[in-house]
Amino acid sequence: MKKFERFEGVVAPLDRANVDTDLIIPKQFLKSIKRTGFGVNLFDELRYLDEGEPGQDCSQRPLNPDFVLNKPRYQGAEILLTRRNFGCGSSREHAPWALEDFGFKVVVAPSFADIFYNNAFKNGILLITFDEDTIDRLFDEVEAKEGYRMDVDLENQRVITHRGEILEFEVDEFRKHCLLEGLDDIGLTLKDEDAIRRFEESHRQARPWLFRQPA
């Protein structure tokens, strides 16, 4: 995983609550056995006017001119501003893979679904939560000002808005650390290999039926 560094990026507003992972990346694109290449199909059903199929040349497909990410002013956006319960539904990690592949590094919303929250951080995407009033205000500001940018400073847990306002956010220590250092969870867990083996042995003694195989 790449280290998460402070950056300033364009903000795109997706004004919709309960954006589910089927909407983020529809199922027909989950057939890939790779982790990359999902960006062209991010929000496929909102973004294009036709029905997408895996392996298509998306540059030839008709774009929905009303969809926010197709508007010239939001090209190159790296920060997605959206509404409550973003990422609900399936556990597909293809959702953060698609966001990341498209170029999003940060999603800002009033709340996120649990599994998506985990999956995003494990792929280097920072999820920032602000209360509904702040989110409402940010929507107004972003829509009012073409080229609206935000400076995201994870180290100090704050964003600086286009107007220079400083907004502080919460993030748990472990996730922050992993993002800043670009750390791999598995390597970290395996440092506790001995503790896992000891636990496993006593667990097996206490409840041997959990380890049983069919005859």
């Binding site: 556990s91 597909r92 990690e93 953060p96 599994i115 985990n118 999956n119 494990k122 792929n123 969870d185 598995i186 970290l188 867990t189 395996l190 290999e193 896992i196 496993e200």
Partner: peptide
């Protein structure tokens, strides 16, 4: 769980 966690469970038998 997500796919990164599938890999984590395969490799460590644990969920973080």
């Amino acid at each position: 769980i997500g796919t990164s966690e599938v890999e984590h469970v395969l490799a460590t038998q644990c969920l973080l």
